[in-house]
Write a protein that binds this DNA or RNA. Structure first.
Lengths: 227, 227
DNA sequence: CGGCTTTGTAACAGTCGCATGACAAAGGCG
DNA sequence: CGCCTTTGTCATGCGACTGTTACAAAGCCG
């Protein structure tokens, strides 16, 4: 997948530059905004993976912006990390109550801030947690139980779903029919070996129905593999 | 289902008591463990919504336990908040890198700690924030206990209401019947798995009565999901 | 090119999972 | 108390999914 993106909202130019530099070094695509209004505009155009927000800003304050972000359903799920010079307990709690996902007090350690951003990021990008299985243009999300080939959804029965899951766990690896029976059907269920063929056939049909090459390779005398 | 649960892992009895007291006052159902091993046992039996973890513990250290929690797929998504007397930057970063979702340094403000726990909790249970849950044209207000489909109000029984709430907390995600029984009916209530079917049916009927497509998806062999 | 093995696939019957309607029990409320 | 709503369970029926088989097609080898 592509680079993670972050929206940096900070009115003070010097601070902005330092942060932007570090964020870029960290591998983020950085968008910057100097005011809350500017930030809201950018949010509508291209929602980032993450928002880094300074509390103290003229006009629209960071906390008010945070509140607005968490009010709109489209932006609600974007993590907001708030930075502030206000170190009082009440302020920190208020920031967190307003919907901020983390609150970092100035002066902060840049290394720790980056670590905290990565924490937020791994929430949004389950890929890094290894949740979504991908290979080529095939994407399988175990959480939603959905399979996509490019943009179109592929409808699979339970067995074909498990079969594809197995293949996606080790793309390229050849699975014998016995190994597939073990993993897909279960250790102590007895079914004919040839049944695997039929289900592989059905999986192939489902995957190629809406166009696209057959991603499953038959290895004569051995079994099947993905790609 | 109503009360959120937290697993408190702390070897020092005095600390444990203070924390447990505050957590209970905050509305949590508190499970406590004095050692890492004990914690792992409890995790298997009844996974909590949240884990509060002291770094310094004899035998299995907090950080090692955290690593293990994040390694197992079944517990990976449970937020872990780590408490530690180790305030060095390297330690904080290490804690966060290991998979902790937040890192609080002793001595901490109890109020802030609770605020941070609430932040983690609303990831898992968005409803506790009291914000309106939305998906498509379905809108659920936890405050007023009202559900709307577009402009028209939908009347639901208590069980259907909790069911829809659960679905709305993670739209798209497939919930097994067991997971729904856990969340909607409660951890230790015994009802037939098939009862879920009936209530999903009732929820469907209520949602589609005044027109509109069926928003609930049946995933054969797995469970149900919203959208 | 035949003969043999291995794989692809259509067809079919059986099974399993799910939706639905009915019903009795429990609970809430005037 | 009696009415009404809600709840959990069951029986039934339908349809999707599954495993098997039979036969066609493809690969391999002399």
């Amino acid at each position: 997948m592509t680079q993670p993106s972050v929206l940096l909202v900070e009115d003070e130019p010097a601070q902005r530059e330092v942060l932007a530099y570090n964020l870029a070094a960290e591998g983020f695509v950085v968008q910057t905004a100097a005011t809350g209004a500017e930030a809201e505009l950018l949010l509508r155009e291209s929602p980032p993976d993450l928002i880094l927000l300074d509390w103290m800003m003229p006009e629209l304050s960071g906390i008010e912006l945070c509140r607005r972000i968490k009010l709109r359903p489209e932006t609600r799920s974007i993590p907001v990390v708030m930075i502030s010079a206000r170190s009082e307990e009440v302020d920190r709690v208020r920031g967190l109550e307003t919907g901020a996902d983390d609150y970092v007090v100035k002066p902060y350690s840049m290394v720790e801030l980056m670590a905290r951003l990565r924490v937020q990021l791994r929430r949004v990008r389950p890929v890094t947690v290894g949740l979504v299985l991908e290979h080529g243009d095939i994407r399988l999300d175990p959480e939603t139980h959905r399979v996509h080939r490019g943009a179109v959804e592929v409808k699979l029965g339970p067995t074909e779903f498990r079969l594809l899951t197995t293949f996606l766990e080790k793309p390229g690896r050849v699975f014998t029919r016995e190994a597939l029976l073990d993993r897909v059907w279960g250790r102590d269920i007895y079914v004919e070996t040839r049944t695997v063929d039929v289900h592989v056939g059905r999986l192939r049909k489902a995957l190629t129905e809406k166009g696209g090459d057959d991603p499953i390779r038959t290895v004569r005398g051995a079994g099947y593999s993905l790609g």
